Computed example of a mutant assay.
Amino acid sequence: MKKKTVALMLAAAMAASLTACAGSGSSAESKTTTAADSSAKEESTKADDAEKTTDAAEKKDNSDLKIGLVTDVGGVNDGSFNQSSWEGLQKAAEDFGVEVNYLESSTDADYVPNIETFIDEDYDLIISVGYMLADATRQAAEANPDCNFAIIDDATIDLPNVTCLMFRQEQAAYLVGYVAGLMTKTNNIGFVIGMTNETMNLFGYGYCAGAIDANPDITIQQFNANSFADPATGKTNASTAITNGADIIFHAAGATGLGVIEACQEAGVYAIGVDRDQYNDAPGTVVTSAMKRVDNAVYDSVESLINGTLKGGVHTYDLAAGGVDIAPSQDLLPEDVKKAVEDVKKKIVAGEVTVPSSKEEFEAAYGDVYQLD
């Protein structure tokens, strides 16, 4: 188990800001001022004051606030949702001056002691990464009602001190499936999932739906690695798909997906990443990624804690709100594919295209195509 601390103090920045404000607005030059000039100046002053108030709120000393992140297996460098969560927390530390830590979970036996460590150290907010931590988070939240908790990808905890951060990942998966359907040259693509359950299957529903809508003749090979921390199995699954004709493979498998990307890179076929923009993990191989902005959700939770507006309940991030999307790295996408994706994004937001969010919805529209239950 690794532990890392980042503590950023912004007192110096506050002092510099106040000094700059105090030194502005003086001039030895005189000029004639019209009524319009005076009005414009007044409005400008109001805008400046509002901006200074916002800056002051962001730069106040929050160093006494401590936020802890408990990862799922796969660790903070999984290249996926654990890493994205930590990146969001690091940005919050930089912007707000809070103290942040992470504790890595090597196995599910680490969930409870990792959470308890942060509780014992009087952390103000504890963020659990992934639905696998739901039982441990619920237990801790019930026993510590004065402590704030947030959990990613789980909506089963109905407690006033637990914020559930959910995502319409099926929408992002639909977009990358659409890309795969348009770009495959063999009409044969692959999908590797870390584990099958109600939450993870949303990736599969979206990916298969998007691929079929873009290319009705497509074949989709599907694999369950049954782990988020097994790159070797991910590589084996991807290699099998490639041997059977797949030329684009999407993974929704955390660190297991690193093996998928490696297999694709070695075989010279395209991979599709997940959760964060994974283009730089294998330039020339990762054609796009289904982004789930857990970094934004983590950042928002910290900001809400500071503002005193953090509430329990379910908070859902979708395509319209920028909570999910296709990756911004698009060097490998042809212009016609980019345009097609932008068009279908608009249709999803407008409600003209409905992405299935359950097995029943998927089968009603596409039949018994999705094989991972």
Rank of each mutant, 00 (worst) to 15 (best):
D108H: 13
Y102V: 10
T107L: 09
I119T: 10
A109P: 07
G97D: 01
Y102M: 10
E121V: 08
Y102G: 09
P113K: 05
E116M: 07
V100M: 04
A109W: 07
L103Q: 11
D110A: 08
N114K: 03
F96D: 00
E99H: 00
D122R: 12
D108F: 13
P113Q: 09
D124N: 15
Y102R: 05
V129H: 00
T107M: 08
V100L: 07
G97E: 00
I127A: 06
N101H: 13
E94H: 11
D122P: 08
A109N: 14
Y102P: 06
V100G: 05
F118D: 05
E121F: 11
S106E: 15
E99W: 00
A109E: 15
E104S: 12
D95G: 08
D95E: 14
V98N: 01
E121H: 13
S128Y: 03
E116P: 03
D95T: 13
E99K: 12
N101W: 07
Y123R: 06
Y102W: 13
L103Y: 11
D95I: 07
N101I: 02
F96A: 02
T117V: 05
V129N: 04
V100K: 01
E104I: 04
D110K: 02
D120R: 13
D120H: 11
I119Y: 04
F96P: 01
A109V: 12
